[in-house]
């Protein structure tokens, strides 16, 4: 896959975490296009290309925080995976929670993988590299007609 065309939607209410991901991608010299929304409602509107997001392309994958204002990440995950129009989009959970119950629930709800937030910037660089090397290099992602 040509990584220059890959787009990742980050659903994260903490702008510092969005910035960390962005900076880590820059440091790792990745050319992934990063889009960010701060809550689940906007994430659903983005994925469904509604309202202000009607002209957006569908992202190749979603990086979803579990703890969001309004509907939780779990609720958003469940909604995505029950919506026939968008359920094929891979959803990668990225959270601070290390709880077994969150891991199991996320996979049950259809998360494509579960990742924990690193505690330092170097960890973020490693993480975004691994995401790129696995999800955007080895894995075949679903494709849509424009």
């Amino acid at each position: 896959m040509d990584t220059g065309t890959v787009e990742l939607l980050v659903v994260e209410d903490d702008p510092q975490d969005v910035d960390l991901i962005q900076q880590a991608m820059k440091a790792a010299m990745l050319t992934i296009t990063l889009k960010a929304v701060p809550d689940g409602r906007q994430a659903l509107a983005y994925l469904r290309r509604e309202g202000p997001y009607s002209a957006c392309r569908r992202p190749d994958a979603v990086l979803l925080d579990l703890n969001l204002p309004g509907p939780s990440g779990r609720e958003i995950l469940a909604t995505i995976k029950q919506d026939a129009a968008i359920k094929e989009i891979p959803v990668l959970i990225l959270t601070t929670s290390d709880a077994e119950s969150d891991v199991a629930t996320s996979y049950r709800l259809g998360a494509n993988c579960y990742l924990t937030k690193p505690s330092h910037f170097t960890g973020y660089i490693q993480l975004v590299k691994q995401i790129e090397e696995f999800w955007f290099t080895i894995v075949r992602l679903p494709t849509w007609k424009p």
Partner: peptide, 28 residues
């Protein structure tokens, strides 16, 4: 919850979409 990695020689995009739609964790 058990992750499923699809390994397929199919090049058909509909197989990729169907696999994700049915809950595959990734398609290789």
């Amino acid at each position: 919850p058990v992750p499923v990695v699809i390994m397929s020689s199919s090049n058909d995009p509909s197989d990729v979409r169907q696999s994700y739609g049915l809950g595959a964790n990734c398609f290789i």
